[in-house]
Nucleic acid binder design. Structure first.
Lengths: 120, 120
DNA sequence: CACTTACGTAAGAAGGTGCTTACATGGTGG
DNA sequence: CCACCATGTAAGCACCTTCTTACGTAAGTG
């Protein structure tokens, strides 16, 4: 029973849609466990357990204030995960003369994002 | 039994150190299953199964050429995962002046505490 | 043609994950 | 002080993961 590394725990945490949704909710403001659990079709203990996973992964910090638990985002691990992915992409794009195609793909994606207005 | 979404599958695939190592090896050149499996302390079928996971997640493409299976990286899904993380980070940093808010939270802890009291 | 090589799949064991309900803890408020 | 509230932990269940060995298949090799 070996403790998994930080990056594995982070990606494993993000592999669950409920946990990703928790992260998206916390990206704008910190919330209590009760606030969060109202949005999910599961019991409050289940949400608390999801928060345990996020906390152990270093993605969320819980600050107990009296009766309530204030959950907020911790971006350092998120940065680490993003950095790992960026590293792979960097070496990939360096590798080929297919730079043209890649840029074309990327531009299309960015156009999609603009269209959908994903940014609030 | 619902098929999990693309992003969940991608993050789940990246949650395993062996699979992340496979990705890093493929980022510079495509390799056969045999080439890859030499680097891991597990059987070849195990590596093949890891490749199944990566393939279903859209992170790897296997191109069977005669007797050999050429494994190469597919960056579109990797881009998607990076984009999701970037989105969260963007909103987080946009949200406020980081230090300012943090200090304000700490200093007005008791005031916040009272405010929250009348919210069920 | 046999014979080996590269690969994939099947079945099963061992352990992990994600939920549930029940319960314990401790702050809050009449 | 006593009831209530938000929360976390425990135990148990169903399912999923990750490995193993055994086997199947098609392509290369003598």
């Amino acid at each position: 029973m070996v403790a998994p590394d930080r990056l594995s725990m982070a990606f494993a945490a993000l592999a669950d849609p409920t946990r990703r949704d928790i992260v998206t909710r916390l990206r704008t403001k910190s919330l209590t466990v009760g606030d969060l659990s109202e949005h999910y079709p599961m019991s409050r203990p289940a949400v608390s357990q999801h928060l345990n996973v996020l906390e152990k992964a270093g993605l969320v910090v819980r600050d107990r204030r009296g009766q309530w638990s204030d959950c907020s985002l911790a971006t350092a691990t998120l940065d680490e995960a993003a950095a790992w992915i960026e590293q792979q992409r960097a070496d990939w794009t360096e590798r080929f003369d297919l730079l043209d195609e890649h840029l074309r793909n990327r531009r299309t994606r960015e156009a999609d994002y603009q269209e959908r207005g994903d940014h609030p």
